[in-house]
């Protein structure tokens, strides 16, 4: 029994490793992009639209509304990052209903990568919004004494993001595995259903935390002026 899909290696050449995490991620990427492409290929702007388009519109406008409610005034600017974060984690976690599927979010490498993405996105959006100096000054707020604490806060929250998602998903998979060995009939199904819920909640938590971090940086100049 392996704890992470990273351990299933298909091809390796020195540092370069093609493991189950990467392959599953690619598969998910293909499904997401092709699905989106297929649905948005025949978009209608009239009042009567297809069911798939309607579903996608509900998802996109839902994410938009969530971003706006957190405090970002131009949600369409951040939906690319935050929406993809949510959709990727959610779809990756939901696919556990397929037998033999290993969610890539159960790999610490993937969650670290996503957390690093947030870690990098926060200064990216902060600098884009108010410039480098304004962003760097935010580390001195409210006083310069807070500088190390702010830096520590950035690093720890990234770490927390990565570990939280990984722990939750990995533990879900582990529990299913353990329960399968104890009582293979009913309990794994229930736990799987619970895993679906946990997966969605984790996707929501991850993306909403990312939004909050970005909003914290982006909204500061507004408050000062």
């Amino acid at each position: 029994m392996h704890l992470s899909p990273d351990d299933v290696i298909f091809w390796q050449y020195g540092f370069i490793t093609i493991n189950l995490t990467l392959v599953t991620t690619w598969g998910l990427m293909v499904v997401m992009v092709v699905g989106s492409g297929l649905i948005t290929r025949k978009l209608k702007t009239g009042l009567h639209i297809s069911r798939w388009q309607c579903a996608l519109e509900i998802i996109v406008t839902g994410i938009n509304t969530q971003i706006e409610e957190v405090g970002l005034r131009q949600p369409q600017k951040y939906i690319g990052f935050i929406g993809t974060l949510f959709l990727f984690i959610a779809i990756a976690n939901m696919c556990i209903v397929f037998p033999g599927y290993e969610p890539p979010t159960g790999s610490l490498s993937t969650t670290t990568a996503l957390a690093l993405g947030v870690f990098l996105a926060v200064p990216f959006f902060g600098v884009e919004r108010g410039g480098v100096l304004t962003y760097l000054k935010s580390y001195l707020q409210p006083t310069f004494i807070m500088l190390p604490f702010n830096i520590i806060s950035d690093i720890t929250r990234t770490l927390a993001l990565a570990v939280r998602l990984f722990g939750n998903i990995m533990s879900g998979g582990m529990i299913v595995g353990i329960l399968l060995s104890i009582s293979p009939l009913i309990f794994p199904v229930i736990m799987n259903v619970l895993g679906l819920l946990t997966g969605l909640v984790q996707a929501y938590i991850f993306s909403i935390l990312a939004t909050v971090y970005i909003a914290a940086v982006v909204s500061k100049p507004d408050k000062q002026t």
């Binding site: 990467l22 978009l43 996608l56 996109v60 690319g80 959709l87 490498s109 996503l114 993405g117």
Partner: peptide
């Protein structure tokens, strides 16, 4: 696995771009 981390980060950035291109932009 740091290669996986870097690859996943790259994958994610690519996915963000693709999703923007194929989902969010047309839908919005």
């Amino acid at each position: 696995n740091w290669f996986t981390v870097i690859a996943q980060l790259f994958n994610f950035i690519l996915l963000v771009w693709l999703m923007k291109r194929f989902l969010y932009a047309p839908i919005l």
